[in-house]
């Protein structure tokens, strides 16, 4: 009998090349450099109305962090998804000048 993962359970860590790709896309969309910290996490969610696996992309800039959740597994996330998710995020110049 196949059992799904429990709520909140973290799936296996993503392959580094996939993490690199998603991180590169976030940097491209926000005009970030290598010095900016970008995290990529895939989480299992069992809440009603949520996708079972979601991908959380975060930019940890002191003073102005921004993160977005894309409701699909990381290997299905496209550049268009990332662009759309961060469309309302503050571009890098503003992030850096934030207090």
């Amino acid at each position: 009998m196949a059992l799904g993962p429990l709520i909140g359970q973290r799936p296996e860590p993503l392959p580094p090349d996939l993490v690199d790709r998603l991180r590169r896309w976030v940097r491209t969309c926000l005009g970030l450099g290598e010095e900016d910290t970008v995290t990529v996490t895939q989480l299992t969610c069992r809440e009603a109305g949520c996708a079972p696996v979601e991908t959380v992309l975060a930019v940890l800039t002191p003073g102005a962090p921004v993160h977005r959740t894309i409701h699909r597994p990381a290997d299905e996330v496209s550049l268009a998804d990332v662009r759309s998710a961060f469309a309302t995020a503050t571009p890098v110049e503003a992030l850096r000048s934030a207090p």
Partner: peptide
């Protein structure tokens, strides 16, 4: 550098400085 991340399902705090240094 402590950051709070709340994506609706999960709420947690992470250390941005550690992510950078460990990377």
């Amino acid at each position: 550098e402590v950051f709070e991340m709340n994506n609706g399902c999960i709420c947690c705090t992470v250390r941005g400085d550690l992510i950078r240094i460990l990377g």
